[in-house]
Nucleic acid binder design. Structure first.
Lengths: 195, 195
DNA sequence: AAAAACTGATAACATTTGTTATTGTTTTGT
DNA sequence: ACAAAACAATAACAAATGTTATCAGTTTTT
């Protein structure tokens, strides 16, 4: 589907059984939006009451550390979700900002909308549980990777899993994502280019 | 309650409404166990099909890195849960081992048991969702802390939140938990002792 | 009680990683 | 099309962190 809503349908079907009437209800509650490169979707400190589903383009989730420097927490590629899930669920100020790195089309799912879905769908709470569990898996992988792998290993892994992202994103953003300095990443690349 | 089951009751009540019949069902499915200091509850590579609720004592969750060295991922204090939640949910080999650091009493919740609870309790799926969300919050905090705070800041935070743990656990385990060498932790303590 | 293993501090040295500055190139904004 | 900004590589140096070894005190095991 051109507008990406059909992709969400597929994702939901991976989790639970959903009939046509239920899907119509979902579809009617989703809205779309477009953001230009560099536009801010969520500002650190504001409440993130929205889940964005990236249809096309690229987002980054980042925060300012105590030195006032941006650190990138996550890149959000096509067909993935972007939110501060803790801010979203608890209604507390977001730890992160979300910004478009390219012109980006998203589908918007608000908190109210999602609570509605949970109660209207026959397996709504189960869907919520499976989404939360999946979110847990994602972040669990991330933390395990930080413990187990060096910056270079994470870089290579990134290269393997998302080779295109390294072309689309300036290298110092990658360094920020890996939590190392851009100079150091440059050195690592040089040291390992013949492996 | 002496055996700690009442603490679990309270935790569930924090999440959902549960009546006496439902609680009796829960209570009857829980079992208890005791482990001596140094005993292994879960071995890295095995499937972790159990959630342990620590009634008394102390557990550690750790893994062997590629150099063959143990890295501590988490300490499990009284009234908290211990599991490899990803292994538990997906039925895949555990990334971690779990070991008793002191003689420890636990309540055992198996995967089958929990799926039963989810279907038998009126708000079972909601309970599952809230548990998964809470697990997400815990690990989300952990990862944010790793991004934002230095080893020393995390040490101090630990000192503030769980002062007793530093008395109960040998220091090189703390260093492992902080992902720094024991020598370095010793130096940091010296450098910051007058702050 | 003696032996062995464990623990935490410390020193000396090696390695990793960050910081700042420079340069040439590419990209962006007007 | 041009000027300004952003980008990546590199060098020189500084700071952080790891490694190995030693030692004295403590705990555990036999």
């Amino acid at each position: 589907m051109e507008n990406g809503i059909e992709n969400i349908h597929q994702l939901i079907l991976n989790y639970i059984e959903i009939n046509d009437a239920e899907w119509d209800f979902c579809r009617s509650s989703f809205k779309t939006a477009s953001f230009k490169k560099k536009e801010i979707l969520v500002k650190q400190g504001d409440i993130c009451d929205t889940i964005y589903f990236v249809v096309s383009g690229l987002l980054r989730i980042y925060f300012l550390d105590e030195k006032g420097e941006e650190k990138i927490f996550h890149f959000c590629l096509e067909n993935t979700f972007a939110t501060d899930y803790e801010s979203f669920l608890k209604g507390i100020p977001s730890s992160f900002s979300i910004q478009a790195m390219e012109n980006t089309k998203v589908i918007i799912i608000t908190f109210e909308m999602l609570q509605n879905l949970y109660s209207v769908l026959r397996y709504g709470d189960k869907l919520g549980r499976l989404i939360a569990e999946d979110y847990f898996f994602i972040i669990n992988d991330k933390i395990k990777s930080m413990y187990i792998h060096s910056a270079m290993e994470r870089y290579k892994k990134m290269n393997t899993r998302f080779p295109k992202i390294l072309q689309r994103v300036p290298q110092h953003y990658i360094a920020s994502y890996l939590n190392i300095s851009s100079v150091h990443l440059s050195r690592l690349k040089y040291a390992h280019k013949n492996e």
